[in-house]
């Protein structure tokens, strides 16, 4: 499968969002959008979602349970030592459980983000349009091998018509 993409470059996100509408109306499948800022409309139009909140919730639950298990084991099972006449299994565990739940949740959410995004220090990347980290926005449409010239032309025309300041092809590969 060829990795060639047709790219339309835009200068404003409202024009970009309108362009996405127009493309989708014409049954063009948008592969990806690059932008210098997060745009909520883009997520909705591409229909992408993330399960990161669910992951965080699971980390939190696991964190709370394991911290409590550890505190219970050390204070009640392993070395039961009375402090100030308080019960061995005390309410003050809640404070440590509360804080360490946040610890576990934060750390693992952070790590999960990088794992899912396949990001790591020193990863070398090439951007299809380098200015998308600066002031431009880009729509990527995959050029499938079976695509006819007329279809490609139609997409290119649509991009131009919807306000793209430049339309080009790109072979740059990246992790989606």
């Amino acid at each position: 499968m060829s990795n060639t993409n047709i790219i339309g470059i835009y200068e404003d996100e409202t024009i970009l969002l309108d362009a996405m509408d127009e493309l989708q109306k014409n049954d063009v499948k948008i592969k990806d959008v690059f932008s210098p800022i997060p745009i909520h409309g883009v997520f909705e139009k591409l229909g992408i979602t993330t399960r990161l909140p669910l992951a965080t919730f699971i980390y939190g639950v696991v964190g709370t349970i394991s911290v409590f298990a550890f505190l219970y084991w050390t204070s009640v099972v392993s070395y039961p030592l009375k402090f100030g006449g308080k019960p061995l299994n005390t309410l003050s565990f809640i404070i440590i459980m509360f804080v360490l739940t946040i610890f576990v949740g934060t750390l693992f959410t952070f790590l999960t983000y990088f794992i899912r995004e396949k990001m790591y220090p020193g990863k070398e990347v090439e951007l299809p349009v380098p200015t998308t980290t600066h002031d431009q926005f880009a729509i990527l449409i995959e050029k499938t091998p079976g695509m006819k010239d007329a279809e490609v032309k139609k997409i290119q025309d649509l991009l131009t018509k919807t306000g793209a300041i430049e339309v080009k092809d790109s072979d740059v590969e990246y992790d989606n």
Binding site: S35, R116, M119
Partner: peptide
């Protein structure tokens, strides 16, 4: 870390930021 700023990247980034902030 090899940031490219595509749609899915931004979605996860925003979600992670709000989650980390919330915690």
């Amino acid at each position: 870390f090899g940031w490219i700023g595509n749609a899915r990247g931004w979605l996860r980034f925003e979600t992670a930021a709000i989650l980390l902030g919330g915690m």
